[in-house]
């Protein structure tokens, strides 16, 4: 099977799943209708009717981790091709990646020492 055929299968799988969901929706629609009633469409908050919108500026406390994560995520892009040829390249690959990872680890340690690895 050529690579393109495989991507075609994945694409078809996506469409098929969406089609399955749509047919479920159609079935549900055939069973009954929704009734608009007072209060029903307000997000449920444990028996209180809270109409306030919650779409406001959200204070995420993992900002420090998130920024370090971005750096590590970039690094992983190099790791995959490296891992595939690792056995073939041998010691060179180990040393090369060792240096690379050591540099990254340094970054992690720096972030750690500066207190980026905690809930802000």
């Amino acid at each position: 099977m050529s690579a393109l055929q495989q991507y075609g299968i994945l694409f078809a799988l996506t469409l098929g799943s969406i089609g399955f969901v749509l047919s479920l929706y159609a079935l549900a629609r055939a069973i009954g209708r929704n009734r608009a009633e007072p209060g029903k469409d307000v997000p449920a908050t444990a028996g209180s009717l809270s109409r306030d919108p919650v779409w406001v500026r959200y204070h995420a406390r993992f900002g420090g981790y998130a920024l370090l994560f971005l750096a590590f995520d970039m690094e992983m892009a190099f790791m995959y091709p490296w891992s595939v040829v690792y056995r073939q390249e041998g010691l060179v690959a180990l040393l090369d990646m060792g240096v690379f990872l050591a540099i990254l680890f340094l970054g992690l340690l720096y972030g750690w020492s500066q207190g980026a690895l905690r809930r802000q």
Partner: peptide, 9 residues
């Protein structure tokens, strides 16, 4: 499948 699927306001 038979329960209402409520859409928020």
């Amino acid at each position: 499948l038979g329960t209402e699927s409520v859409l928020a306001r």
